[in-house]
Simulated scan of single mutants.
Amino acid sequence: MWVVAQAPPETPVGPEFGKASPVGLFILVVLGVVILGIGYAFHRRLSRFNRRRLFAEQHGIDPFDREAIDAAMEEAGLRDLSRTSYL
């Protein structure tokens, strides 16, 4: 037996049907800005991590030894961007 999908017999009609409020657009814009902000923060954090990892590998330091990396970067005169706040 085949069942064909049909609209309910009484569908909403009228001048207000299908219109979204401006609040919905505002929510979408805010969510878009939040997603872009999270993506930007993640990119900065990942870039810093890669920079510190490459520095540690070049200098023969364990990449997970934060104190040793901080001290070596300070000694090399590099500004440690991982300690700055981005928010």
Rank of each mutant, 00 (worst) to 15 (best):
V33R: 00
V33N: 00
V33D: 03
I35S: 07
L36R: 00
L36I: 03
G37M: 00
I38G: 04
I38Q: 10
I38Y: 15
G39H: 05
A41I: 08
A41R: 09
A41P: 05
F42P: 01
F42R: 13
F42D: 14
F42V: 02
R44V: 06
R45M: 10
R45P: 06
R45V: 02
R45H: 12
S47T: 05
R48D: 13
R48T: 04
R48Y: 14
F49C: 02
F49E: 09
F49G: 02
F49Y: 12
N50A: 07
N50F: 07
N50V: 10
R51S: 10
R52A: 06
R53K: 14
R53Y: 12
L54S: 15
L54C: 14
L54G: 14
F55Y: 10
F55V: 10
F55P: 11
F55M: 13
A56S: 14
A56R: 09
A56H: 10
Q58M: 04
H59T: 02
H59I: 00
H59P: 01
H59C: 02
H59G: 01
I61W: 01
I61M: 03
I61R: 00
P63F: 14
P63L: 04
D65A: 10
D65Y: 13
R66F: 01
R66V: 00
E67K: 15
A68I: 08
A68S: 12
I69F: 02
I69S: 03
I69M: 03
D70C: 09
A71I: 03
A71P: 03
A71C: 00
A71M: 00
A72N: 10
A72L: 10
A72W: 12
A72P: 11
M73N: 06
M73S: 08
M73V: 10
E74L: 05
E74A: 08
E75R: 14
E75C: 08
G77P: 11
R79K: 14
R79Y: 12
R79P: 07
D80E: 09
D80P: 03
D80A: 04
D80Q: 02
L81G: 04
L81A: 07
L81N: 07
S82G: 12
